[in-house]
Design a binder for these strands. Structure first.
Lengths: 224, 224
DNA sequence: CTTAAAATACCACAAACGTGCGATTTCTGT
DNA sequence: ACAGAAATCGCACGTTTGTGGTATTTTAAG
C-alpha cells in the first residue's frame, strides 16, 4: 500500500472527473454546483437518467467517479451500475439514496457499487466520500457493511476435510471440469484403470456414487 | 431491525459481556482495565490464547463480544474465530491488530469476524466499536471494506441466459443434485425417455456433453 | 385458426460409468 | 528396516449415459 498525500494537500493536480446521474433536477444542480466549486473536482457530465448518460456520455472522457441515484427509476438504477462497469471497468460508483434503503443499497453493492452516501449528507461529507472512494475506500453505512460481511462469511462454508490425497484432488479437479475418465488419464499420463481406481476412492471418501454428486459436493462445500 | 437506545442512554441495564484474548499480558491488562471501568461493559474472561479460552471459558457465561488478537499466534487467530462462532453463534468477534494487516484481517472477516480495531486506537474508539458491533454494525477500515465489496461483487457473475425452459430448469436442478435419469423420471412422474430428451436438449443449450460439464456450468455461472 | 414452441414419449446402440475384486510399486515416517 | 499409506495398473460385468432418430400432444402467440 502506498501512502497518499493528506487531504489538506490541494495542489492543482488533474482533477477528479465525476459524472452525476440524478433525476431530481433541483438536487442535481445543487450537487454539480458543489462539485465544480470544489477544487480538484470536475463534473463534465450531469444527467437525469442512466439512458441519458449512455447516449450523451459517449463523447465525454471516462469518469473516475459516478454519483448515481437509485431512488425512483427502478430498472435504471441497479442495472445501470453493471452497464457503467462494463463501459468503465475502473470507475467508482457511489450510490445516492435519500433514506436508508438497505435492500436497494445492498443490491447496488452486489452489482458493483463502491459505496454510497445519503442525499442529506453535508457537502463536506460528499466531497470526502468522493476522495475516499478514489483513494480505494468504500464509504458505507456500518450496518450495511455488517450485512455484506455476514453473507460474505456465509459463502465460505465449512471446509470439511474428506481426506483426499493430492492426486485425488487433482483428478477430482479434472472430473469437475467435465472430462471423462479416459480424457483425464490422457491429460495426466496415467492408465485409464488408475484413474478409474482414483475416482472410485474419491467417491467413497466423498460419500457419493455419481459424477454429478461429486461435482455438486465440490462446489457446495468449497472442496479443492 | 429493532431500534436500540442511544449510546448516551447509560442506564444500568445488563452490561455487555466481553471476552478478551490477547497474548501480550501488558496490553491485555490495559484493555480489561478499560472495559471494567466503562459502565455497561464487563469482562469476565481475559485469556492469553484461544486454547486458554477454550478450556477456561466453559464455565463462563456466553460472551456477546470477543476481542481477539490475531497478531502472532498464527493458527490460533483465524481458526479460533470459527471455533468461537461454533460455540457462540451470535457472538460478535472484533479483531485486534497492531498494524494494518490487510490480508490477515481479510481472512478474519471471511472466517466470521464482525469487524476489527487497531490496538493503538484511543480508548473511546474501542468502546465505541464494541457498542457499534453489538448494535449490528461492522467497524472496519474503509479499504478493507472496499476489498470485501470487490470480491463480493465478483461472486455475482453475469447470469447468461441459455434459454432453458422451466421444465428443463427443473430437471437440471435434479440432475445437479446427483440423481440419475431414472430417478429424475420417478421423482417428477415422467417417462425415462422424456427425461432423456429433456437432458439432451439441456446439454445442447448449455453446450456441454457430460453431466459434470452441466453441473459445473450451473455452479460457475449461477444458472437456476 | 394456425403455427411455433414446449412437453411428452419411444427405440437402438455405442460409449462411458460404477463397482466388485486383485495386484505391484513407490513414498513416508518411526 | 519395516509398516502403512499412496499411487499405480489390471479385468469383468452390469448399469447408466449420450446421441441419433421419430412422433404425438399441449400450450402460447400471432
Amino acid at each position: 500500500m502506498k501512502e497518499k498525500p493528506m487531504a489538506e494537500d490541494r495542489r492543482p493536480v488533474k482533477p477528479i472527473t465525476i459524472w452525476l446521474i440524478e433525476d431530481n433536477a433541483r438536487y442535481r444542480k445543487t450537487l454539480s454546483g458543489l462539485i465544480i466549486q470544489t477544487p480538484g473536482l470536475t463534473c463534465p457530465g450531469s444527467f437525469g437518467s442512466c439512458e441519458e448518460a449512455f447516449s450523451s456520455g459517449k463523447s465525454l472522457p471516462a469518469p473516475e467517479v459516478i454519483l448515481l441515484d437509485i431512488g425512483l427509476p427502478g430498472i435504471n438504477g441497479i442495472s445501470g451500475i453493471e452497464t457503467f462497469k462494463t463501459w468503465f471497468p475502473d470507475v467508482n460508483i457511489l450510490i445516492l439514496t435519500v433514506y436508508d434503503d438497505h435492500d436497494r443499497v445492498f443490491e447496488a453493492l452486489c452489482a458493483g457499487a463502491s459505496g454510497y452516501l445519503l442525499k442529506d449528507a453535508p457537502p463536506e461529507k460528499i466531497v470526502d466520500a468522493i476522495h475516499e472512494v478514489v483513494a480505494g475506500g468504500a464509504p458505507m453505512n456500518i450496518r450495511i457493511a455488517h450485512r455484506v460481511l455476514e453473507i460474505f462469511a456465509r459463502m465460505k462454508p465449512r471446509k470439511t476435510d474428506y481426506g483426499l490425497t493430492d492426486r485425488e484432488k487433482e483428478i477430482l479437479q479434472l472430473l469437475v471440469s467435465g472430462l471423462t475418465k479416459q480424457e483425464i488419464a490422457d491429460r495426466i499420463f496415467l492408465s485409464f484403470h488408475t484413474v478409474n481406481t482414483h475416482i472410485k476412492n474419491i467417491y467413497s471418501k466423498l460419500h457419493v456414487t455419481t459424477r454429478s454428486g461429486a461435482v455438486s459436493k465440490v462446489y457446495r462445500e468449497n472442496i479443492l
